[in-house]
Design a protein around this nucleic acid. Sequence first.
DNA 1: AAGAAATCTTGATTTACATCAAGAAATTAA
DNA 2: TTAATTTCTTGATGTAAATCAAGATTTCTT
Lengths: 194, 194
Amino acid sequence: MHSADIELIQNAFGLIDFTKDDYSEFYEMWSECEFKRGETITDLGQVERSFYIVKKGVQVVYILDKNGNQKVIGFSFDGSFSGIYDSYLHKKPTKYTLSSVTPSKLLRLTYEDYSSLFDKYPSFDRWGRLAHQELLIGRVNREIELITLSANERFEKFMARCPEPLKTIPQKYLASYLNMTPETFSRLRKNVKI
Amino acid sequence: MHSADIELIQNAFGLIDFTKDDYSEFYEMWSECEFKRGETITDLGQVERSFYIVKKGVQVVYILDKNGNQKVIGFSFDGSFSGIYDSYLHKKPTKYTLSSVTPSKLLRLTYEDYSSLFDKYPSFDRWGRLAHQELLIGRVNREIELITLSANERFEKFMARCPEPLKTIPQKYLASYLNMTPETFSRLRKNVKI
DNA sequence: AAGAAATCTTGATTTACATCAAGAAATTAA
DNA sequence: TTAATTTCTTGATGTAAATCAAGATTTCTT
């Protein structure tokens, strides 16, 4: 475990006070893995075995609708968490696919290690409460934008705050995340208010 | 504090082991309040001061879109939590309105008492982590349904699992929650696949 | 119980965005 | 570099659901 990785982990778990306890056992739980451009990390029907921190690259979680179209649920990239969370926590086959959009390096934590954290280090429950609270609020905000805004408004609002790593991936993923077709996305980009 | 209320609280905080500690101080934190049919509980622009457990009645959280249409984000009813959560936690004016659809009795907990819980009773952090985790998964599932399903599919899926208390409120609220107009909802009810 | 208010229904019309199609541009792989 | 592949653009057309409108029904209020 290199110091750069330890720093990455500490940043990802920002609400934990890492000066308080000895967390060496926690750091040792993580192992590195790599995925190629376009590689599927966790496929539909599998049980998610890992919780990830992204070292490098962009990953996408999508679901297939009944016409076989990919519907992007979310992204992960440098510094953020990744994985298919409900499958991981409930140990049940996933409806989603986690795919590596660009070549990626991830730090992986198994479910067994993840769950052991909360008994081993009491402060992780506090982290979990606050982290999930913020994730929940973020998800509701996205839901509001999907419900209340037009395609054009969703486009403009998203582009105004688009994280740097997402500016490098094919636009079809952003279009899908914004719940519109690549054609619509393309037209909005040219500022043709459709 | 009556024993029926204590039972209600214990059920709402299902993941807490109430046999382990003395929670009398916790029970005493709650106070009862009532709202009339159609009464606004927390209005747009206010800071939410309360976290609620519903004793009786149906409440709705909605946001106004730019045309002034109510967009229903969620419901609460007998036994569930209520309140405008992000405003409560972040102490900032809300974009939403919390309104009492039917005459309601709620048990209220102030933010000060809520936040004191986690230091007073360590097991509440565990509760918070797991409760928020499940809320998050539920919210993502709703998002998926909004994105991947047609109005007809959303209607059928929702009606198949519609909680009893919601069967008594005006259909326009359900329609809005399903992100469709009352007219569309009405047509789907007659099984006219539009 | 009667009147008022809100809600629901049904049909006609509109519209935002999807779909289809095909060529242009960019990116990847050899 | 060049061919192959993927992605992006642009126009023409289609459609699910919204909007508009107005009468019918239900629910509240007194």
